[in-house]
Amino acid sequence: MSNDVKNNRIVSNDITAQNRPQTTFKSNLDLPDVDTCMARLALVSQQKSASAIMRWLGLPPSTHSNWKRRNSVNYDRVVEGLLRHNVSLDWFFAPSTDLFYPNVSSVVSETGTEYQSNEAVTLTLKALEHVEPIMQHYKVEMTEQNRQIMAETFLKRRGDGMLLDTALRQVAIALATAQGNAEG
């Protein structure tokens, strides 16, 4: 069996290996079933039929009937299609989970004489740009603590929304801060 390297991946030239059905990955995670997967794909793709959704993913239209027959979704193909369309995997696989995002952007690296911009700083400035006019409109005091709460809330959003639990926690933090300021 010979292999070729394409896009930094080793691609097998073994035709039998390419045509062999993929083994089902057994996981303890609660991944979406076929119907849930299709419902989420219909939402994000804005397609009505299963065959149109499959084409949107870049898959043959018959893929859906294969999934239904096997009662199993080929998630790696779904991931490839979602990423190709810049759709958040968080939204698809964990829509009601407030996930942890490690802060790996705090490391500054050099490229020649230029420094790469720190993504965390850029995101914080964008958040402040958005929240400060809201704070001014509602006459919220421009303290560092208030700015921080508002910026954190902005950064915890998912698309145009926020998980209810996350929103309630942020409101509780804001209320506790306001009560502390009113009492102190």
Rank of each mutant, 00 (worst) to 15 (best):
R20H: 08
D30L: 11
Q136K: 15
V73K: 07
I134R: 15
D30K: 15
I173R: 07
D33V: 03
R77H: 10
V140W: 10
K156M: 08
S27T: 14
W56F: 06
A172I: 05
D14G: 00
N7K: 14
Q22F: 01
S88F: 06
R158C: 05
M150R: 03
N13D: 04
T97K: 14
S106F: 10
S65I: 01
D4F: 05
Q47S: 10
D160I: 05
A167T: 08
A151E: 05
R70T: 08
T113K: 12
W91R: 04
F93S: 07
Q46E: 11
Q47M: 12
T124C: 13
D14Y: 02
P102C: 11
Q46I: 01
S72M: 02
L41M: 07
H85N: 14
N13I: 00
A172Y: 08
Y138T: 03
A127W: 11
M54P: 01
T23R: 04
T23S: 01
N3S: 09
L125I: 14
P95Y: 10
V131M: 15
F25P: 00
D14K: 03
A94R: 15
G58R: 08
L59N: 13
D90G: 12
L59Q: 15
F25S: 04
M162D: 02
L57H: 06
A94C: 12
Q170G: 00
L29V: 08
I134D: 10
T177P: 00
D30R: 15
A120I: 05
Q46W: 01
A52G: 13
Q170Y: 02
F25V: 09
K6P: 00
Y115F: 07
R9N: 07
V79Q: 03
T111F: 12
V11P: 03
S65N: 10
W67C: 00
M142F: 12
M135R: 12
T111D: 07
M142A: 11
R158L: 06
I134G: 04
W67T: 07
T124M: 13
N146H: 09
P95W: 12
W56T: 01
S65P: 00
N71F: 08
A151R: 04
T111Y: 12
D98S: 15
T113F: 10
A167K: 13
A182Y: 11
H64M: 07
P60T: 14
Q116W: 01
T63A: 12
S88I: 04
K126C: 04
S49R: 13
M162E: 05
P21R: 04
Y138D: 03
D98M: 08
N103A: 14
Q47E: 07
G81N: 05
W67A: 00
L168M: 10
S62N: 11
K126H: 14
